[in-house]
């Protein structure tokens, strides 16, 4: 079982870097709805960065659904558990 807190920290770092927002502003409610920096372009950037960081490839369905911090952490947790 992967440590959700550790995944969360790494996801927060990627989000902060890609969206150019302070890491401390990324909380459980952080999402494409709440952040004006989360544009369609930056969403693609985010997906490619997360795939590299966590060595995974997201499906098209996942790519459409990964629109919040919590969804990303949950999805990565499941994906990493399934290969552990």
């Amino acid at each position: 079982m992967h440590d959700r807190d550790r995944i969360g920290r790494r996801v927060r770092e990627v989000l902060a870097q890609v969206l150019d927002v302070p890491a401390k502003s990324i909380d459980q409610d952080f999402s494409a709805t709440s952040s004006v920096a989360w544009t369609s372009l930056n969403h693609l950037m985010l997906i490619s960065q997360l795939e590299t960081e966590f060595d995974v490839v997201f499906s098209n369905q996942e790519i459409r659904e990964l629109t919040s911090y919590t969804t990303i952490v949950d999805t990565l947790g499941r994906r990493l558990d399934s290969v552990a």
Binding site: D20, T39, S40, L41, N42, L44, M45, S48, Q49, E51
Partner: peptide, 24 residues
């Protein structure tokens, strides 16, 4: 119609942009 504002992508590093291109 789509509008990409420079302020939302100007900070991306060259390696990040390369990764974006390779992926999409």
């Amino acid at each position: 119609i789509d509008l990409a504002e420079r302020s939302t992508y100007g900070h991306l590093s060259p390696s990040s942009v390369r990764r974006l291109a390779d992926r999409w």
